[in-house]
Every structure is written in structure tokens, then in C-alpha cells.
């Protein structure tokens, strides 16, 4: 039975990979998977049953892909919810914020500054995202989507990045907390 399930899963994935995933699809998947390597403080959730909310600013294709991807998935025992967020001001009760590349460096830096100190994992897709104040930032190397991390910034927000996540990060910025 287990073997059949595994076979089915492998077959599904094989189909998915058949047409090579786009960069946005990979980013959406990474966003979803990041939730498994980050520890939020308990106060970040209103109650134990509260869902883990991923907010997306801009990046419509990533939002669309992510919305499809989280269906039926959980992170740290919580259901995952995906919301569109405004670029103007921070919103409460959100745990991951992804700011699309089209938002622009200044606006991104401002928004990051607004979220600073809050238990929110901030992820950008800018060439200097970490310098703007993001905790994680997507980079593309040799046509592969990679990411870099600033665990010290995450620490300021009360988050803790897993060492395993850091082990596969392309670059650690700002030293370890």
C-alpha cells in the first residue's frame, strides 16, 4: 500500500517535471517549503489553530502558483493560507511576506522597514534584497533558483532560521546571530 502510494507520488512528480518548472513555480515552491525551516515565536499566532499566513506583494504568477500549491498542505501543523498584501503598509497576522521584484528597491526597503521587529519572515526577489533588510532573498545562478539568508535580521524579528536551511543557502549575509 505504502509502496503504491509512493509510486503514485513519484509518478505525479515525474509528470510535473516533464515540462521544466518555471522560475516562478520554483519560487512559489520554495516559499511554501521555507515554512518548514523557520521557527516563529508563539505570540506570532493568535491561537494554536490559527493558519500560517503567507502574504504576497506583487508577483502575481508566484501568488497564483502558491495558492495552488498550498492546497492540502500544512506547515508546522497549521494549514497554510495565501493572501495578497498591499505594498503601501504592513498588515497584522501574517507570517511570511514575499515582495515581488516589480515593487522596486525603495518601496521594498520601506515595506521591509515597516515589518522590521515583527515575527514575519520577509523574502525578496531583488539583486540586493538582503541589503534592503530582507531575511531571505532569491537569486538565480546558472539558471537555477537559489537563495541567500540573513539570519541576524530574522533574529531581530524573533524568528529562527534552521541550520539546515542555512546549509543550503547560497550566501549567509551579516553573520550568524
Amino acid at each position: 500500500m505504502v509502496a503504491l502510494l509512493v509510486l503514485a507520488a513519484v509518478a505525479q512528480r515525474a509528470n510535473a517535471q516533464a515540462d521544466a518548472p518555471t522560475a516562478d513555480q520554483v519560487k512559489a515552491a520554495y516559499l511554501q517549503k521555507f515554512t518548514g525551516y523557520v521557527d516563529w515565536p508563539p505570540k506570532a499566532f493568535a491561537d494554536p489553530a490559527a493558519p500560517l499566513v503567507i502574504g504576497v506583494v506583487g508577483a502575481d504568477s508566484v501568488f497564483a502558483e502558491l495558492s495552488r500549491l498550498v492546497l492540502g498542505r500544512t506547515a508546522q501543523g497549521r494549514t497554510i493560507a495565501v493572501r495578497r498584501l498591499p505594498a503601501a503598509a504592513p498588515v497584522p497576522d501574517v507570517h511570511v511576506v514575499f515582495i515581488g521584484r516589480e515593487i522596486g528597491a525603495e518601496a521594498t526597503a520601506a515595506l521591509l522597514a515597516a515589518y522590521r521587529g515583527r515575527p514575519v519572515l520577509t523574502v525578496t526577489d531583488q539583486p540586493r534584497g538582503l541589503a534592503l533588510g530582507a531575511m531571505l532573498n532569491f537569486v538565480e545562478l546558472e539558471r537555477r533558483v537559489r537563495f541567500e539568508a540573513a539570519p541576524a535580521l530574522a533574529d531581530i524579528g524573533g524568528l529562527r532560521l534552521s541550520s539546515r536551511l542555512l546549509a543550503v543557502a547560497e550566501r549567509i549575509w551579516g553573520g550568524l546571530p
Binding site: 520554483v26 520554495y30 517549503k33 518548514g36 525551516y37 537555477r144 533558483v145 537559489r146 537563495f147 534552521s162 539546515r164 536551511l165 546549509a167 543550503v168
Partner: peptide
């Protein structure tokens, strides 16, 4: 397996 989970998840063959 434990240490390579992230490498697999985030597609990092080097790690």
C-alpha cells in the same frame, strides 16, 4: 537523510 532534506527540498546537489 535528515541533513540532506533541505538540500533535496531546495535542489542543492552540492550540499
Amino acid at each position: 537523510a535528515h541533513s540532506s532534506e533541505a538540500a533535496v527540498v531546495f535542489n542543492d546537489p552540492k550540499a
